[in-house]
C-alpha cells in the first residue's frame, strides 16, 4: 500500500537555514546539509528546500547546498524558490535535486511547465501554488504572495496537470504561519479536481493538523516547517501519531 508522506521543509537563505532544528549536537545549526541529514535519518520521506535568497548575486549558494545534501541524503530532495527557467531546473537537477518546484514562473509562463516536464519528465516537476480565499473561490498569488494573479486556483491546477506537472504543492496563504491547521477545504477541492498527487502546506501547528491534511484534505503528502523546528516534534513522532490514527506511513 502506498504510504502518505511527511515532508519537512527548510527555508534556506544565502545558503543558510533560516529557522531550523535546535539540537546541541549540531556542529553548525545553520547548515542546511546537517539539518537535512537529521531529517532523513529521522525518517523523513522527502526533504524540501525553499530558497528565499532575495538578491540575485547570492542565488548560486543554493546549488552548493543541493550538491552537498544529495551526497549525504538518500531520500528524494525537492528544491523550490526563485526557479525561473529550464536552465535553472537543469542546474538544480544536475546538482542532485530530484524534483524542482516552480511557482511564479509557472503562472507567468506556463510553457516552462510544459517544456520542463517534456525535457526532464513529469516526475521531477512540482508546481507550487500560493492560494488565498476570495469569496467562494481561491486565487493564485505570485512573487512570494505579494501579487494577486487573479487566476482561479481550481482552474489553474487543472491546466498545470495538463501541462505535465507531476505533483502539486499547495500552500494556503490564509493559513501559512498561523499554526491553526491546513485549509483542508482548499486541499480537498484541489485534490478532487486533479489526478496528480497533492502536497498540503501552510498552517501546521500540531500533529492533528497533519492527520486532517490527509484525512480531510485528501493530500498524498503533508509538508511542514515550524513544527519540526526547534525539536517541537520529530518526524518519527509525527509518523507514529499518524499511524495511531490509522494513516498509512512508512515506519
Amino acid at each position: 500500500m502506498l504510504k502518505n508522506r511527511i515532508i519537512p521543509c527548510l527555508d534556506v537563505k544565502n545558503g543558510r537555514v533560516v529557522k531550523g532544528i535546535n539540537f546541541v549536537d549540531l556542529k553548525d545549526a545553520g547548515d542546511p546539509v546537517e539539518q537535512a541529514k537529521i531529517y532523513s535519518d529521522g525518517g523523513a520521506d522527502e526533504i524540501c528546500f525553499l530558497d528565499i535568497t532575495a538578491s540575485n548575486e547570492n542565488r548560486d549558494t543554493i546549488y552548493d547546498v543541493v550538491e552537498r545534501t544529495s551526497k549525504k541524503c538518500f531520500v528524494p530532495l525537492t528544491v523550490g524558490g526563485g526557479v525561473r527557467s529550464i536552465d535553472d531546473i537543469n542546474k538544480l537537477l544536475n546538482c542532485g535535486a530530484d524534483k524542482v518546484s516552480i511557482n511564479t514562473a509557472a503562472v507567468e509562463n506556463p510553457k516552462v511547465v510544459l517544456e520542463s516536464s517534456k525535457k526532464f519528465g513529469s516526475q521531477c516537476i512540482v508546481v507550487a501554488i500560493d492560494a488565498k480565499k476570495n469569496g467562494d473561490k481561491w486565487e493564485i498569488f505570485t512573487h512570494g504572495g505579494r501579487n494577486n494573479s487573479g487566476l482561479d486556483a481550481l482552474e489553474y491546477v487543472k491546466k498545470m496537470e495538463d501541462n505535465g506537472a507531476g505533483e502539486l504543492l499547495v500552500t494556503s496563504m490564509d493559513r501559512d504561519g498561523t499554526q491553526i491547521g491546513y485549509d483542508v477545504e482548499l486541499m480537498s477541492n484541489i485534490a478532487s479536481n486533479v489526478n496528480i498527487p497533492l502536497i498540503a502546506s501552510g498552517g501546521v501547528g500540531n500533529l492533528d493538523h497533519l492527520v486532517d491534511g490527509i484525512k480531510l484534505g485528501n493530500a498524498s503528502a503533508v509538508l511542514a516547517a515550524s513544527i519540526f523546528h526547534y525539536g517541537k516534534h520529530s518526524v518519527q513522532e509525527a509518523k507514529e501519531y499518524l499511524d495511531s490514527k490509522g494513516i498509512p506511513v512508512r515506519i
Partner: peptide, 16 residues
C-alpha cells in the same frame, strides 16, 4: 490503470 481516477498518477512515494 488508475481505476477511473480513484488512484493518483504518477504512483509517487513509498510503497512496500
Amino acid at each position: 490503470d488508475n481505476r477511473n481516477g480513484k488512484y493518483k498518477l504518477p504512483h509517487i512515494g513509498w510503497n512496500q
